[in-house]
Design a protein around this nucleic acid. Sequence first.
DNA 1: CAAAAGAACGAACGGTCGTGCTATTTTATC
DNA 2: GATAAAATAGCACGACCGTTCGTTCTTTTG
Lengths: 208, 208
Amino acid sequence: MTATTAPAKGLATREHILDHAYERARVGGLEGLSIGTLATDVGMSKSGVFAHFGSREDLQLAVLDAAARRFMTRVLVPALSAPRGLPRLRAIVTQWCEWGREHQSGCVLLTAAGEYDGREGALHDAVVAQQAGWRGELEKAIAQAVAAGHLRADTDAAQLAFEIYALMLGLHHDAGLFGFEQASRRLHAAFERLWRSWQPQRTDPCPP
Amino acid sequence: MTATTAPAKGLATREHILDHAYERARVGGLEGLSIGTLATDVGMSKSGVFAHFGSREDLQLAVLDAAARRFMTRVLVPALSAPRGLPRLRAIVTQWCEWGREHQSGCVLLTAAGEYDGREGALHDAVVAQQAGWRGELEKAIAQAVAAGHLRADTDAAQLAFEIYALMLGLHHDAGLFGFEQASRRLHAAFERLWRSWQPQRTDPCPP
DNA sequence: CAAAAGAACGAACGGTCGTGCTATTTTATC
DNA sequence: GATAAAATAGCACGACCGTTCGTTCTTTTG
């Protein structure tokens, strides 16, 4: 009870269940998650799995949270080792694209956004919070790039974040339907154009 | 049997069922469609509804097809009255945006793309065909704008179509999560920048 | 070692699912 | 109006759903 060292052996299986649930949710979405099939996956009984979460909705929330943590660990954290400003922003995009490559079969966060955007409830709120949080991180990185003089001083951070996010949605969409490689090429071409149109000043034309 | 005039009274109810199914699918997706709840909606028995389609998958295919027809009627057809080239392309975007406003609670085509992009089967194939078809229409309109000299001669139609589509995905995403008006403003700002960066020649800088 | 706590099982519940059957009613044709 | 055909209802089925409950096995604690 004093929680001396690490008695929680059951927490490990909970994590193990979440691993399988995450993989299932990538393909079928959070709405497609079923405790029965999940129990078969991990080799447990339905009630055994159920006991770890208390309800299906809590399971879905746990999977969503796990997905968000994985995303941050895989995309944001590595990018933080790049210097502030445009390099870090580009690193974020690069890592994000890698995330997309590893999640061609479906991304839980994006699927969830589509599943709960029109509804209301705990899932909806969690999705909105997660998306707003990530958008905030994007805008922060953009603001730093503006402050460092890597982007035009009049840059609308929210606007640029929207456009970046839209391109990543395009990547995911096209990758799922027409193949990742083609989509990836289009994405990079679009970003090249995007960075150019937000760069601080035209250096090439008409030197006075 | 010779199909003289129009004996099919049952076709009308089939269309009536599809209307309700379409509305349901907007919120819950094609995967969330259930024959039981649909039957309650239209005030019929489950088996009565079922008989019109023969299987749930055929119902889903019918709804997908109905959605595609509505989209074309609502977006492409009105835009065809605009003159070829950039005006028509911009009309497409405008109508598409209106479509987005009317489908904030969810668009069947986009939801279906997310639901079946990783799987395989008749639904997947139908979604891919629908998406590829629409992308083709976009590229055709772009090619006409290039031919008319409204866009740069070296324009990659597929690339521009990708970027347009990505922005519309951004609109749908943000509209569902953060509200349509804000998303719409961001979309228009993005398009303004987009058209400018693809316009045929720089008219303003450094006249020789 | 004994006792308390935690983890997992197995069976069962009420529901809903899609899908077949067989009647019954409605519609169209002669 | 009689008759054939189409449309719909009613019922039942097996399967799966999330959830609850009581029991058993394992682990930790005193």
